[in-house]
Amino acid sequence: MASSLQRVDDLAAPSLAKPRGRSRLRRMMVLARRKPLGALGAGLMLLLVVVALLAPLLAPYDPYESISGARLLSPSLSHPMGTDNLGRDLLSRIIYGARISLMIGVLAGALGTLGGLTVGLISGYAGGWVDNVIQRVVDSLMAFPGLILALALVATLGPSLRNVMIAIAVGAIPNTSRVIRGAVLSAKQEDYVSAAHALGAPGWRIAIFHIVPNVMAPVLILASVGFGVSIIAEASLSFLGLGAQPPTPSWGVMLSGPSRRFMTDAPWMAIFPGLAISLVIFGINVFGDALRDILDPRLRG
């Protein structure tokens, strides 16, 4: 019995797996042709991930090491993006900076989305006074622009990369939860929810197994937005001196404070870190647009 199963598997594996792989690839190719900008965005985001993961292999120098006699060198073959005022290789610092951006984007984005999903789900599914209380708190939190809320949070928590991450995630929760609450409210009206209810499923079960999967489209869109917003917010706060602190090679830090005095003599110190941020944000924007078109055609603009 076992051996015959084995044999069937052996036979089935190559014949099934190959076309499936090919068709998935073909589907992606079709999508990429229909949404070339979205594909470019996906490519840029993939590049960010690869650079961040392979940073130690890709970086020609240690991002923290001051190379003696190499202060403010203009871009050359040995330092393609030049060096900064402390003689550190800019390319290496930007490559390591990708790690910080990716980490913040993923962690703060995920934390904010998850928090928003939890709050929105509880508020929307519970309804009644629970919903009312939560929504009034959300109202008050939404009375602040996101970055100002994050700024105030960092002011109380103290400036550090970890606190910036918390501040960004908390700052994202009000808006995210509001959108998800709306999606939960409409999913709650569906027949399958009534059916599950009639079958005697407990409330938490309906919420988690029936409603959550059906609000995944807005959750994914919000997560992609949150990823981008978090990266910009970290760079902005670090730029203002409230996030990552020098010598951390955060792209925001590289554009901020002490290095600004040298930028007119060494413009590459300003141009390259900003270019890295802009490319990543551009990728996220166009990828997010394409994702929104594909997942939720009603939101198309």
Binding site: M263, L279, I281
Partner: peptide
Amino acid sequence: SVPNFYLGT
């Protein structure tokens, strides 16, 4: 895509 602190710089 260009954050305002970069454009400002």
